[in-house]
Write a protein that binds this DNA or RNA. Structure first.
Lengths: 151, 151
DNA sequence: GGGATAAGATTGACTCCGCAACCAAACTAG
DNA sequence: CTAGTTTGGTTGCGGAGTCAATCTTATCCC
Protein backbone atom coordinates (compact mmCIF):
# COMPACT_ATOMS: atom_id res chain seq x y z
CA UNK A 1 0.00 0.00 0.00
CA UNK A 2 2.92 2.29 0.69
CA UNK A 3 3.93 1.84 -2.92
CA UNK A 4 0.54 3.10 -4.08
CA UNK A 5 0.60 6.08 -1.74
CA UNK A 6 4.05 7.07 -2.88
CA UNK A 7 3.15 6.62 -6.52
CA UNK A 8 0.18 8.93 -6.06
CA UNK A 9 2.26 11.52 -4.25
CA UNK A 10 5.06 11.46 -6.78
CA UNK A 11 2.64 11.66 -9.67
CA UNK A 12 0.81 14.63 -8.18
CA UNK A 13 3.94 16.60 -7.39
CA UNK A 14 5.75 15.89 -10.63
CA UNK A 15 2.71 16.47 -12.80
CA UNK A 16 2.07 19.84 -11.19
CA UNK A 17 5.66 20.86 -11.61
CA UNK A 18 6.05 19.70 -15.21
CA UNK A 19 2.70 21.14 -16.18
CA UNK A 20 3.69 24.53 -14.84
CA UNK A 21 6.93 24.45 -16.84
CA UNK A 22 5.34 23.26 -20.06
CA UNK A 23 2.44 25.64 -19.71
CA UNK A 24 4.80 28.57 -19.30
CA UNK A 25 7.15 27.61 -22.12
CA UNK A 26 4.81 26.11 -24.71
CA UNK A 27 1.22 26.37 -23.48
CA UNK A 28 0.71 22.63 -23.40
CA UNK A 29 0.21 20.00 -20.69
CA UNK A 30 2.19 16.87 -19.98
CA UNK A 31 -0.56 14.81 -21.60
CA UNK A 32 -0.48 16.96 -24.73
CA UNK A 33 3.26 16.46 -24.82
CA UNK A 34 2.95 12.72 -24.49
CA UNK A 35 0.34 12.57 -27.25
CA UNK A 36 2.49 14.62 -29.61
CA UNK A 37 5.48 12.48 -28.78
CA UNK A 38 3.56 9.31 -29.59
CA UNK A 39 2.29 10.73 -32.87
CA UNK A 40 5.72 11.97 -33.91
CA UNK A 41 7.16 8.51 -33.28
CA UNK A 42 4.33 6.69 -35.04
CA UNK A 43 4.56 5.42 -38.57
CA UNK A 44 3.46 8.21 -40.89
CA UNK A 45 3.07 10.58 -37.96
CA UNK A 46 -0.45 9.43 -37.31
CA UNK A 47 -2.45 6.99 -35.22
CA UNK A 48 -6.03 5.91 -34.82
CA UNK A 49 -7.57 7.93 -32.04
CA UNK A 50 -8.43 4.90 -29.97
CA UNK A 51 -4.92 3.55 -30.11
CA UNK A 52 -3.50 6.89 -29.16
CA UNK A 53 -5.93 7.07 -26.26
CA UNK A 54 -4.83 3.79 -24.71
CA UNK A 55 -1.20 4.64 -25.40
CA UNK A 56 -1.35 7.80 -23.34
CA UNK A 57 -3.77 6.39 -20.76
CA UNK A 58 -6.93 8.31 -21.57
CA UNK A 59 -10.42 7.21 -22.46
CA UNK A 60 -11.74 7.75 -25.97
CA UNK A 61 -13.67 10.81 -24.94
CA UNK A 62 -10.69 12.28 -23.16
CA UNK A 63 -8.71 11.86 -26.35
CA UNK A 64 -11.36 13.64 -28.39
CA UNK A 65 -11.12 16.61 -26.09
CA UNK A 66 -7.35 16.64 -25.97
CA UNK A 67 -7.16 16.52 -29.77
CA UNK A 68 -9.73 19.30 -29.99
CA UNK A 69 -7.25 21.48 -28.19
CA UNK A 70 -4.25 20.41 -30.23
CA UNK A 71 -6.23 20.86 -33.42
CA UNK A 72 -7.25 24.37 -32.46
CA UNK A 73 -3.59 25.03 -31.86
CA UNK A 74 -2.76 23.65 -35.31
CA UNK A 75 -0.55 20.91 -33.94
CA UNK A 76 -2.56 17.99 -35.28
CA UNK A 77 -5.17 17.42 -37.97
CA UNK A 78 -7.71 14.76 -38.80
CA UNK A 79 -7.27 12.26 -41.59
CA UNK A 80 -9.90 9.82 -42.75
CA UNK A 81 -9.40 6.17 -43.48
CA UNK A 82 -10.68 5.07 -46.86
CA UNK A 83 -10.98 1.43 -45.85
CA UNK A 84 -13.03 2.02 -42.72
CA UNK A 85 -15.19 5.09 -42.57
CA UNK A 86 -15.51 4.86 -38.78
CA UNK A 87 -11.92 5.65 -38.03
CA UNK A 88 -10.27 9.02 -38.13
CA UNK A 89 -6.57 9.31 -37.69
CA UNK A 90 -4.90 11.96 -35.61
CA UNK A 91 -1.89 13.21 -37.56
CA UNK A 92 0.82 15.52 -36.32
CA UNK A 93 1.44 18.60 -38.46
CA UNK A 94 4.70 20.37 -39.14
CA UNK A 95 3.65 22.99 -36.64
CA UNK A 96 2.99 20.18 -34.18
CA UNK A 97 6.48 18.77 -34.68
CA UNK A 98 7.94 22.21 -34.18
CA UNK A 99 5.93 22.66 -31.01
CA UNK A 100 7.00 19.27 -29.74
CA UNK A 101 10.61 20.01 -30.52
CA UNK A 102 10.49 23.35 -28.73
CA UNK A 103 8.79 21.87 -25.68
CA UNK A 104 11.06 18.84 -25.57
CA UNK A 105 14.11 20.99 -25.12
CA UNK A 106 13.40 22.03 -21.57
CA UNK A 107 10.96 19.31 -20.59
CA UNK A 108 13.24 16.41 -21.33
CA UNK A 109 16.12 17.97 -19.50
CA UNK A 110 13.96 18.69 -16.48
CA UNK A 111 12.78 15.11 -16.58
CA UNK A 112 16.27 13.76 -16.90
CA UNK A 113 17.43 15.94 -14.05
CA UNK A 114 14.75 14.69 -11.67
CA UNK A 115 15.63 11.09 -12.30
CA UNK A 116 19.36 11.24 -12.79
CA UNK A 117 19.96 13.12 -9.58
CA UNK A 118 18.09 10.45 -7.64
CA UNK A 119 19.00 7.18 -9.34
CA UNK A 120 21.98 5.47 -10.80
CA UNK A 121 21.48 4.03 -14.30
CA UNK A 122 21.09 0.56 -12.84
CA UNK A 123 18.51 1.74 -10.33
CA UNK A 124 16.64 3.51 -13.08
CA UNK A 125 16.48 0.29 -15.06
CA UNK A 126 15.17 -1.44 -11.98
CA UNK A 127 12.50 1.18 -11.51
CA UNK A 128 11.44 1.05 -15.16
CA UNK A 129 11.17 -2.71 -15.03
CA UNK A 130 9.13 -2.72 -11.83
CA UNK A 131 6.80 0.03 -13.00
CA UNK A 132 6.32 -1.83 -16.25
CA UNK A 133 4.55 -4.62 -14.44
CA UNK A 134 1.77 -2.37 -13.19
CA UNK A 135 -1.53 -2.18 -15.03
CA UNK A 136 -1.61 0.60 -17.61
CA UNK A 137 2.15 0.91 -17.90
CA UNK A 138 3.82 -0.93 -20.78
CA UNK A 139 1.51 0.63 -23.39
CA UNK A 140 4.74 1.43 -25.10
CA UNK A 141 5.86 0.90 -28.63
CA UNK A 142 3.90 -2.29 -29.11
CA UNK A 143 0.23 -2.48 -30.04
CA UNK A 144 0.65 -0.91 -33.48
CA UNK A 145 0.52 -4.01 -35.66
CA UNK A 146 -2.12 -3.02 -38.20
CA UNK A 147 -0.85 0.51 -38.45
CA UNK A 148 -0.48 0.28 -42.20
CA UNK A 149 -4.02 0.97 -43.35
CA UNK A 150 -4.47 3.27 -46.27
CA UNK A 151 -5.41 6.93 -46.42
CA UNK B 1 11.89 9.10 -19.43
CA UNK B 2 10.40 5.67 -19.78
CA UNK B 3 10.04 5.62 -16.02
CA UNK B 4 7.94 8.78 -16.13
CA UNK B 5 5.76 7.51 -18.97
CA UNK B 6 5.10 4.27 -17.16
CA UNK B 7 4.39 6.03 -13.92
CA UNK B 8 1.82 8.19 -15.66
CA UNK B 9 0.21 5.23 -17.35
CA UNK B 10 0.06 3.15 -14.22
CA UNK B 11 -1.34 6.03 -12.23
CA UNK B 12 -4.06 6.73 -14.77
CA UNK B 13 -5.18 3.13 -15.08
CA UNK B 14 -5.08 2.31 -11.40
CA UNK B 15 -6.75 5.53 -10.32
CA UNK B 16 -9.61 4.98 -12.74
CA UNK B 17 -10.08 1.43 -11.59
CA UNK B 18 -9.88 2.15 -7.87
CA UNK B 19 -12.08 5.19 -8.18
CA UNK B 20 -14.76 3.16 -9.91
CA UNK B 21 -14.68 0.56 -7.14
CA UNK B 22 -14.69 3.06 -4.31
CA UNK B 23 -17.36 5.16 -5.97
CA UNK B 24 -19.62 2.16 -6.32
CA UNK B 25 -19.08 0.78 -2.85
CA UNK B 26 -18.74 3.90 -0.72
CA UNK B 27 -19.28 6.96 -2.91
CA UNK B 28 -15.79 8.31 -2.29
CA UNK B 29 -12.65 8.81 -4.39
CA UNK B 30 -9.16 7.49 -3.80
CA UNK B 31 -8.13 10.93 -2.59
CA UNK B 32 -10.99 11.04 -0.11
CA UNK B 33 -9.90 7.64 1.10
CA UNK B 34 -6.34 8.73 1.55
CA UNK B 35 -7.37 11.83 3.46
CA UNK B 36 -9.59 9.85 5.80
CA UNK B 37 -6.83 7.33 6.31
CA UNK B 38 -4.37 10.07 7.24
CA UNK B 39 -6.83 11.66 9.64
CA UNK B 40 -7.71 8.35 11.28
CA UNK B 41 -4.03 7.66 11.84
CA UNK B 42 -3.26 11.15 13.14
CA UNK B 43 -2.98 12.02 16.80
CA UNK B 44 -6.46 12.91 18.04
CA UNK B 45 -7.96 12.06 14.66
CA UNK B 46 -7.29 15.52 13.35
CA UNK B 47 -4.76 17.54 11.41
CA UNK B 48 -4.24 21.08 10.28
CA UNK B 49 -5.65 21.46 6.81
CA UNK B 50 -2.35 22.52 5.29
CA UNK B 51 -0.52 19.55 6.70
CA UNK B 52 -3.19 17.21 5.45
CA UNK B 53 -2.98 18.81 2.02
CA UNK B 54 0.73 18.21 1.62
CA UNK B 55 0.36 14.73 3.07
CA UNK B 56 -2.09 13.66 0.39
CA UNK B 57 -0.46 15.69 -2.36
CA UNK B 58 -3.04 18.40 -2.93
CA UNK B 59 -2.84 22.17 -2.85
CA UNK B 60 -4.51 24.09 -0.07
CA UNK B 61 -7.46 24.94 -2.25
CA UNK B 62 -7.89 21.37 -3.36
CA UNK B 63 -8.01 20.36 0.27
CA UNK B 64 -10.70 22.92 1.04
CA UNK B 65 -12.87 21.46 -1.69
CA UNK B 66 -12.21 17.88 -0.73
CA UNK B 67 -13.07 18.59 2.89
CA UNK B 68 -16.22 20.42 1.78
CA UNK B 69 -17.39 17.16 0.31
CA UNK B 70 -16.42 15.03 3.27
CA UNK B 71 -18.02 17.50 5.64
CA UNK B 72 -21.28 17.44 3.70
CA UNK B 73 -21.11 13.66 3.97
CA UNK B 74 -20.60 13.98 7.73
CA UNK B 75 -17.25 12.21 7.64
CA UNK B 76 -15.19 15.10 8.99
CA UNK B 77 -15.82 18.28 10.93
CA UNK B 78 -13.96 21.50 11.61
CA UNK B 79 -12.29 22.28 14.90
CA UNK B 80 -10.76 25.59 15.83
CA UNK B 81 -7.44 26.13 17.48
CA UNK B 82 -7.52 28.37 20.52
CA UNK B 83 -3.87 29.30 20.31
CA UNK B 84 -3.92 30.37 16.66
CA UNK B 85 -7.14 31.70 15.24
CA UNK B 86 -5.98 31.20 11.68
CA UNK B 87 -5.88 27.45 11.79
CA UNK B 88 -8.82 25.12 11.55
CA UNK B 89 -8.33 21.44 12.07
CA UNK B 90 -9.98 18.79 10.00
CA UNK B 91 -11.18 16.08 12.37
CA UNK B 92 -12.56 12.70 11.44
CA UNK B 93 -15.95 11.86 12.92
CA UNK B 94 -17.26 8.49 14.06
CA UNK B 95 -19.25 8.34 10.85
CA UNK B 96 -16.03 9.07 9.00
CA UNK B 97 -14.24 6.23 10.71
CA UNK B 98 -17.11 3.91 9.87
CA UNK B 99 -17.00 5.02 6.26
CA UNK B 100 -13.26 4.53 6.10
CA UNK B 101 -13.56 1.11 7.66
CA UNK B 102 -16.25 0.04 5.22
CA UNK B 103 -14.32 1.33 2.21
CA UNK B 104 -11.02 -0.13 3.39
CA UNK B 105 -12.42 -3.63 3.33
CA UNK B 106 -12.56 -3.98 -0.42
CA UNK B 107 -10.13 -1.24 -1.40
CA UNK B 108 -7.19 -2.56 0.55
CA UNK B 109 -7.67 -6.05 -0.71
CA UNK B 110 -7.91 -4.83 -4.31
CA UNK B 111 -4.75 -2.86 -3.73
CA UNK B 112 -2.95 -5.79 -2.17
CA UNK B 113 -4.05 -8.02 -5.03
CA UNK B 114 -2.68 -5.71 -7.71
CA UNK B 115 0.72 -5.57 -6.09
CA UNK B 116 1.08 -9.04 -4.64
CA UNK B 117 0.29 -10.74 -7.90
CA UNK B 118 3.02 -8.77 -9.63
CA UNK B 119 5.81 -8.47 -7.09
CA UNK B 120 7.54 -10.58 -4.54
CA UNK B 121 7.86 -9.00 -1.08
CA UNK B 122 11.49 -8.14 -1.80
CA UNK B 123 10.61 -6.52 -5.09
CA UNK B 124 7.87 -4.57 -3.41
CA UNK B 125 10.35 -3.23 -0.89
CA UNK B 126 12.60 -2.25 -3.76
CA UNK B 127 9.77 -0.43 -5.50
CA UNK B 128 8.74 1.39 -2.34
CA UNK B 129 12.28 2.50 -1.71
CA UNK B 130 12.82 3.73 -5.26
CA UNK B 131 9.49 5.55 -5.41
CA UNK B 132 10.28 7.14 -2.07
CA UNK B 133 13.12 9.09 -3.64
CA UNK B 134 10.86 10.90 -6.06
CA UNK B 135 9.60 14.39 -5.26
CA UNK B 136 6.26 14.37 -3.49
CA UNK B 137 6.51 10.81 -2.26
CA UNK B 138 7.78 10.30 1.27
CA UNK B 139 5.18 12.65 2.78
CA UNK B 140 4.52 9.76 5.06
CA UNK B 141 4.29 9.53 8.79
CA UNK B 142 6.89 12.19 9.42
CA UNK B 143 6.24 15.92 9.29
CA UNK B 144 3.87 15.97 12.27
CA UNK B 145 6.25 17.13 15.00
CA UNK B 146 4.29 20.07 16.41
CA UNK B 147 1.02 18.18 16.22
CA UNK B 148 0.31 18.74 19.88
CA UNK B 149 -1.32 22.16 19.79
CA UNK B 150 -4.33 22.72 21.98
CA UNK B 151 -8.06 22.72 21.34
C1' DG C 1 -29.68 -9.62 -48.38
C1' DG C 2 -31.21 -8.07 -43.61
C1' DG C 3 -31.44 -7.63 -38.74
C1' DA C 4 -28.56 -8.08 -34.26
C1' DT C 5 -24.19 -6.73 -32.27
C1' DA C 6 -19.88 -4.51 -31.98
C1' DA C 7 -16.41 -0.76 -32.78
C1' DG C 8 -14.85 4.19 -33.56
C1' DA C 9 -15.89 8.65 -32.41
C1' DT C 10 -18.35 12.56 -30.41
C1' DT C 11 -21.24 15.29 -27.06
C1' DG C 12 -23.51 16.84 -22.64
C1' DA C 13 -23.28 17.02 -17.97
C1' DC C 14 -20.59 16.40 -14.24
C1' DT C 15 -16.44 16.06 -10.82
C1' DC C 16 -11.95 17.10 -9.42
C1' DC C 17 -8.58 20.21 -8.73
C1' DG C 18 -5.19 23.91 -9.85
C1' DC C 19 -4.07 28.89 -10.08
C1' DA C 20 -4.50 33.50 -8.81
C1' DA C 21 -6.62 36.66 -5.99
C1' DC C 22 -8.16 37.53 -1.72
C1' DC C 23 -9.08 37.99 3.53
C1' DA C 24 -7.78 37.55 8.23
C1' DA C 25 -4.72 36.47 11.89
C1' DA C 26 0.04 36.41 13.48
C1' DC C 27 4.74 37.51 13.68
C1' DT C 28 8.57 41.19 13.04
C1' DA C 29 10.55 45.41 13.06
C1' DG C 30 11.24 50.41 13.23
C1' DC D 1 2.21 51.16 18.55
C1' DT D 2 1.96 50.75 13.68
C1' DA D 3 3.51 49.17 9.05
C1' DG D 4 5.13 45.37 6.42
C1' DT D 5 5.55 40.34 5.74
C1' DT D 6 4.31 35.66 6.30
C1' DT D 7 1.02 31.98 7.07
C1' DG D 8 -3.62 29.51 7.11
C1' DG D 9 -7.55 29.29 4.63
C1' DT D 10 -11.37 30.19 1.13
C1' DT D 11 -13.37 31.50 -3.39
C1' DG D 12 -14.04 32.66 -8.62
C1' DC D 13 -12.83 30.91 -12.62
C1' DG D 14 -11.26 27.65 -15.78
C1' DG D 15 -9.09 23.27 -17.63
C1' DA D 16 -8.88 18.39 -17.85
C1' DG D 17 -10.91 14.13 -18.01
C1' DT D 18 -14.89 10.63 -16.80
C1' DC D 19 -19.24 8.41 -17.68
C1' DA D 20 -23.37 7.57 -20.10
C1' DA D 21 -25.84 8.26 -24.16
C1' DT D 22 -25.83 8.75 -29.07
C1' DC D 23 -24.63 8.43 -33.98
C1' DT D 24 -22.44 6.12 -37.72
C1' DT D 25 -20.23 2.47 -39.96
C1' DA D 26 -18.74 -2.58 -40.00
C1' DT D 27 -19.24 -7.19 -39.14
C1' DC D 28 -21.57 -11.52 -38.11
C1' DC D 29 -24.89 -15.00 -38.89
C1' DC D 30 -29.09 -16.97 -40.48
Amino acid sequence: MTAWVRLMGAHAAMTRSFNADLQASSAITVTDFEALRRLAAADGGRMRRVDLAVAVGLTASGMTRLLDGLERAGAVCKEHCSSDARVTYAAITDAGRALLHAAAESHLSALAAVFSERFSPAELDQLVELLGRLPGAEEDASSCPGAAAED
